[in-house]
Each structure stands twice: as structure tokens, then as C-alpha cells.
Simulated scan of single mutants.
Amino acid sequence: MSAEMKAVLGEAIAAHPDDEQDGAIPTGYALRAKGRGVAVEDSDLTCMLRAIAEGRDYITTLGLVGWMRVVAQNIALEGWPSEG
């Protein structure tokens, strides 16, 4: 990921928690994304992309990734939680 893209991503992530809860301040992030390979024409290969907040310790990152796994597993087994 280019430094410019990482900066834009960091700014967007920094702004998002305040949209959800006034005054919230992100202290780290771990982003996982899945995509299709484009290096080979007509590729069906799946690629996994990741981005981790600069300067954050591995314990924070591992905690976020572990929490994401648990949430995703619960959603897969029980469905999305109802809003409201």
C-alpha cells in the first residue's frame, strides 16, 4: 500500500469512530479485506489484504484481530444482530 493511500485510510478510520459515538478516539486498527487476484487474466485466485495502524503494538493488533474473528464467527452462526 502506498504511503499516500495509507494516510488517506488512516484519516478515514480516525474520523469514523466519532461518527458512531461523539468524542470517540481510535487507538488502533486492523483492517482485513478479501479480493480477487488481478495479476493473472481471468484469475479466480482470492487475495487477502491487510492494513495495520502505524506505530501500534502487536498486542493491540492481535486483540483486534481476535475480536474480529469472534464477531464474524458469531454472525456466521447466529446472523447479524438486530439494530435498535
Rank of each mutant, 00 (worst) to 15 (best):
M1V: 08
S2F: 09
A3V: 14
E4D: 01
E4S: 10
M5Q: 14
K6M: 08
K6G: 03
A7E: 14
A7K: 11
V8A: 06
V8K: 15
L9G: 00
E11L: 10
E11M: 03
A12I: 09
A14H: 09
A14T: 09
A14G: 07
A15T: 00
P17N: 01
D18H: 10
D18Q: 10
D19M: 04
E20R: 13
Q21N: 01
Q21V: 09
D22M: 12
D22R: 08
D22C: 01
G23R: 00
G23N: 08
A24Y: 03
A24G: 03
P26R: 06
P26C: 03
T27W: 11
T27R: 15
T27V: 15
G28D: 05
Y29V: 00
Y29I: 05
Y29R: 00
A30K: 02
A30N: 02
A30S: 02
A30M: 03
R32A: 13
K34H: 04
K34F: 12
K34G: 01
K34N: 10
G35V: 06
R36K: 14
R36I: 14
G37N: 04
G37C: 06
G37F: 03
E41T: 03
E41Q: 07
D42V: 00
D42C: 08
D42L: 07
S43M: 00
T46R: 11
M48V: 14
L49G: 12
R50Q: 12
A51E: 06
I52R: 07
I52C: 00
A53K: 08
E54G: 12
G55W: 02
R56E: 09
D57P: 06
Y58A: 15
Y58S: 15
I59T: 15
T60G: 10
T60P: 00
T61P: 02
T61G: 08
T61A: 11
L64W: 03
V65N: 12
G66A: 05
W67H: 10
W67Y: 01
W67T: 05
M68Q: 13
R69I: 02
V70W: 01
V70N: 05
A72F: 06
N74Y: 04
I75L: 01
I75V: 14
E78I: 09
G79V: 04
W80D: 13
W80R: 14
P81K: 00
S82R: 15
E83C: 13
G84L: 02
